[in-house]
Amino acid sequence: MARIIAFIVLLIPALIAGAGIKFMRDTLYGNLISPFPWLWLQFLTGLIFSIIGIGFFAGYLLHRDRKRGRVAPRFQKNGDTKEMKQ
Rank of each mutant, 00 (worst) to 15 (best):
M1P: 08
M1Y: 07
A2I: 08
A2L: 09
R3E: 02
I4D: 12
I4F: 14
I4M: 13
F7H: 03
F7M: 07
L10W: 04
L10N: 11
L10G: 10
L10K: 10
L11K: 01
P13R: 05
A14V: 15
I16C: 03
A17R: 00
G18M: 11
A19D: 05
A19K: 00
G20I: 10
K22N: 07
F23E: 05
D26A: 04
D26Q: 13
T27M: 03
G30N: 11
L32N: 05
S34D: 01
P35M: 12
P35S: 13
P35W: 05
F36H: 10
W38Q: 08
L39P: 01
W40M: 05
W40I: 06
W40Q: 13
L41R: 04
L41M: 14
Q42E: 13
T45R: 00
G46D: 09
G46W: 02
L47P: 00
L47V: 06
S50W: 02
G53P: 04
I54R: 01
G55E: 08
F56D: 09
F56V: 15
F57L: 01
L62R: 08
L62Y: 04
H63N: 15
R64P: 04
R64H: 06
R64N: 08
D65L: 12
R66M: 02
R66I: 02
R66L: 08
R68Q: 15
A72R: 14
A72W: 07
R74C: 08
F75Q: 11
F75C: 07
F75R: 05
K77Q: 13
N78R: 12
D80P: 03
T81N: 15
E83K: 14
M84H: 15
K85I: 00
K85N: 09
Q86P: 10
Q86Y: 04
